[in-house]
Design a binder for these strands. Structure first.
Length: 192
DNA sequence: TTCGGGATCGACT
DNA sequence: GTCGATCCCGAAT
């Protein structure tokens, strides 16, 4: 299959525009292509759930301050990675978390990364839950923090044109109960 | 179908 | 020392 990379300009748009725009697009790595089905916006200037809230700039959050169009990957809970796409311009700390996806190509590769067995041997439960969470997306792609900060237009890992999504639903973000008023922001987007 | 406990470690206080 | 943008599995509902 022929995948066309999204242009750099896509990532420089408003973060919510990028988050919604990513739905239906493909994340491509080697023989794997995943269709993005769920995203969340994180905007440092006003969002207590964002790692760079209030301009917190450390070695860890540095990618958030970069110009849009790179990946931000970090370790969570000591054992899982989360994949983010950086949006907007330089020194504007914000990005989009990839929360969920579906397999478009590379079923056995993804299955091997997740469960170390071919797709055909998975239980119905495992098939259903194979990529429905941010840590799982990274695991399925076989990526970790060594890819942190690379370009969304790179050869090894990139985002490509996909389908248009007719219905986009919104909801509250997940796993950020500590973020006070920001936890109620309707910044989670998923396919209807 | 939902619930609860455990695993595990880097970043920051 | 604390805790998180999580996941899995088994047990109970």
């Amino acid at each position: 299959m022929d995948y066309k990379r999204l242009k750099k300009e896509f990532y420089l748009q408003d973060t919510h525009t990028v988050a919604k725009g990513l739905l239906g697009k493909y994340i491509v790595r080697n023989n794997i292509a995943l269709e993005i089905t769920e995203t969340e916006s994180y905007i440092g200037s006003i969002d207590k759930a964002c790692h760079a809230y209030g301009g917190r700039r450390t070695a860890r959050t540095e990618p958030l301050f970069a110009e849009g169009g790179i990946f931000y990957i970090y370790l969570i809970y000591g054992m899982y990675c989360c994949l983010n796409v950086i949006s907007e311009g330089k020194d504007v700390p914000c990005g989009v978390l990839i929360r969920g996806a579906e397999i478009a190509e590379g079923y056995d590769e993804v299955s091997k990364n997740r469960y170390n067995k071919p797709y055909g041997l998975l239980s119905p439960y495992q098939k259903k839950n194979i990529l429905n969470g941010p840590g799982k997306v990274c695991m399925g792609l076989g990526i970790d923090r060594s890819q942190n900060g690379i370009s969304c237009l790179s050869d090894k890992l990139f985002i490509a044109e996909g389908k248009d999504v007719e219905v986009i639903k919104t909801g509250k973000r997940i796993g950020i109960d500590y973020a006070e008023e920001a936890k109620d922001f309707l910044w989670r987007y998923y396919k209807g």
